[in-house]
Design a protein around this nucleic acid. Structure first.
Lengths: 219, 219
DNA sequence: TGGCCGACTTGAACGCGTTCAAGGTGCCGC
DNA sequence: GCGGCACCTTGAACGCGTTCAAGTCGGCCA
């Protein structure tokens, strides 16, 4: 029996939090209501989770798992780089769509440089690396032939692109976030052609500069 | 005498807020301390400013004014597109540097899609357009010869680049934010060459696509 | 002058996230 | 059985941003 009492309590709190986040949004869900819904005291919730933000990490992880599961099929079947990229980015929009309002509400917290929820924070490094690994798989299994200098950086660049899409999506108030979908279907061919162009002599120097800049600028 | 009593009160509150934001940071400055420092009641501060965030708008405006003042000299003297762009971006870093910690603290609020402080919000449209106008001046007075299709979009794209630099800067914990400076000095030649390349036949189609995408995606 | 009205001002009160001193609870060695 | 200890649980209390009913003030009209 690996589910000790503590783990059960912890799980009850997470479950209550996710349920309430979904039904009432991030702001309207109070730590008191989470504790109450979980059948524990307020202080107890803080014994397991240092802050309200820490409870959102569970949400994060859940979406990431759903996203990974949603794209395995395509990544096994499709070889075209553009098609793979579009599938991965659109799948994220599909997975995230039910939580758009919620995401907008806690995005402010995720954007805080000091927040553990920030996509650039040390605490979110595992999730970040998992996500970058997904893009590495996307590239490796594709027919893309990027410039050698670009190849090792491409997964991280695509992850950055994904962060850009997320940023746009958070601000996207169009119905069903269709503008975000247009952004994805529009930007994928551009990226596709950029990767192809990267081998062109005139462009090659530019790519080297960008790759060098990336390395300079990374701590 | 245009300074009615109300305007004086308003000014006293803003002054107190900016003073305290500077000396103690955003989080540690409470609305109570601002009201107290300004010699008014707590409720009175809320009579003039709907929220703590609204008080930050004054900060925003001040930095923007300083930035505009800092670049007029260079924009009058220098004609090279790259040099102009680098000067404008670096000048922003200079102006903003003393407020780096403060900026990190309230960035979370600015990142909230619903916040009036968001750079994409309707409320900040005037400041945004002023900033884009600065980049239009940068382009117009320069020796850059971008593709015709690109030209009208270039100021807005440069503004986006500036937002990207700001984003990087907020997360930049290197001493003196030197990595942000490296980012600027590294990215400017890339942008410079991209603008030149935009006239190249192979690239031209790409530019058209990006421009079209920008228009599609804008509401 | 008196009365009114809109602009301005007040501070108590609310609900929130978070902290913490105090107390339970169960298990281990003796 | 018993003391001790680590783990777990509690809810009152704190400080915060924000709201609001209740004022005060100043000028203008009758």
């Amino acid at each position: 029996m690996t589910t000790t009492k503590a783990e059960q309590t912890r799980a009850r709190i997470v479950d209550a939090a996710l349920r309430l986040f979904r039904s009432s949004g991030y702001d309207r869900t109070t730590m008191r209501s989470i504790a109450s819904e979980a059948g524990v005291s307020l202080g107890n919730a803080y014994y397991y989770f240092g802050s309200k933000e820490h409870l959102v990490q569970a949400f994060y992880d859940q979406i990431q798992d759903e996203h990974a599961a949603a794209v395995t099929g395509v990544l096994d079947a499709e070889r075209g780089f553009g098609a793979r990229l579009e599938a991965v980015l659109l799948a994220w929009l599909d997975v995230a769509e039910p939580h758009h309002e919620f995401a907008g509400q806690f995005f402010r917290n995720a954007a805080d440089p000091r927040s553990p929820l920030s996509p650039f924070s040390p605490e979110s490094a595992p999730a970040r690396e998992t996500s970058i690994a997904l893009f590495a798989r996307l590239v490796d299994g594709s027919d893309a032939k990027p410039l050698a200098a670009l190849k090792p950086e491409l997964p991280r660049l695509l992850w950055l692109l994904q962060m850009g899409v997320v940023l746009f999506w958070v601000y996207d108030d169009s119905p069903g976030q269709q503008r975000s979908r247009q952004l994805v279907t529009g930007i994928v061919p551009v990226v596709d052609r950029l990767v192809k162009l990267s081998r062109l002599p005139v462009v090659r120097g530019l790519v080297d500069d960008v790759v060098g800049l990336l390395q300079t600028v990374r701590s």
